[in-house]
Structures are given as C-alpha cells and as structure tokens.
C-alpha cells in the first residue's frame, strides 16, 4: 500500500509540475507588469513540484522498484524496463535541472518583455513540458509491463 502511495504521489507531483509549466508558458507569452508576480510564483512552483516528484520517485525507485523490475523482465514486455525505464530515469535528470534553473532564469533575467529573455524562458518551459509528457507515457508503459509480467 505504501509502495502504491509513493508511486501515485510521484506521478501527482510530476503532473502538477507539467501543468504549472504549461500555465507559465502561456503567462510568459503574454508577459507584462500585471502578471510578472504570477510568473515568478509559477516558476518556483514548477521547480518545487519537480524536485518533490524527483525525491519521491527516487525513493520509490531505489526501495521498491527492484521487485517490479524482475517481474517486467520475466514477462512479455522486458523492453518496458530495458528501454523505457532506463531512458526515463536518466532523461529525468535533464528535466530536474531545467526545473531548478527555471526560477533563476525568471527572477534574474529581466525584463521578460524583452523578446530574447522571453524566448529563453519559453524554451525551458517547452522542454520541461515535452520531457514531462514522455515521462508520463513511459511511466504508463512500465506499469503495463508489470501487469503483463504478472499475467505470465
């Protein structure tokens, strides 16, 4: 049960981080004095949510994943671990670092009405969103790999 709880909160915080990145992307597109405070809060929210997701997911991976990996590898979808989990766990570091850098880019790289500054933040948001979507898809495939492995 604790295992499932950790897994669900890892996904929950990850999805919230992606959603905040989408909201931030839209806000930066329309950056101005009125929404600058919200942009700063959203950039911090993305960083915090991704870091929490990383800590919970990392703990779950190190503590619980070993047993599930064996099930996946013995099943019909061994590539769910051999490809998707391996790629996911390493590409996640890129997302984590982008997430941590995001508030630095927003707070220290002003004004965001400047096109170059705006494009930098937009590019970071876009990469977080794209990698995040891949994370969610890969997570789904890995879960399915466990289900198929249990069927035998």
């Amino acid at each position: 049960m604790l295992n499932q709880g950790f897994m669900m909160s890892h996904v929950l915080f990850g999805v919230l981080g992606i959603l905040c990145a989408v909201a931030l992307f839209m806000d930066v597109l329309n950056a101005g004095e009125k929404n600058y405070q919200r942009i700063k809060i959203l950039s911090l929210a993305v960083a915090v949510l991704i870091v929490i997701s990383f800590l919970i997911g990392g703990y779950w991976y190190v503590t619980y994943y070993g047993a599930e990996r064996d099930i996946i590898k013995a099943g019909a979808w061994p590539w769910a671990h051999n490809f998707f989990m391996e790629v996911k766990e390493h590409i996640f570091f890129a997302m984590l670092l982008l997430g941590i850098y995001l508030p630095i880019a927003v707070y220290k790289n002003t004004p965001l009405t400047n096109r170059k500054n705006k494009n930098l933040v937009l590019a970071i948001c876009a990469m977080i969103i794209l990698i995040g979507i891949f994370m969610e898809g890969a997570g789904g495939i890995i879960s399915k790999g466990v289900t198929i492995g249990l069927r035998g």
């Binding site: 170059k116 500054n117 494009n119 930098l120 590019a123 990469m127």
Partner: peptide, 9 residues
Amino acid sequence: SRKLMYYIS
C-alpha cells in the same frame, strides 16, 4: 539570452 537558449536546447 538567445545564445544561451540555443546552447541549453
């Protein structure tokens, strides 16, 4: 910022 954006991407 533009140069940094290209390098980060």
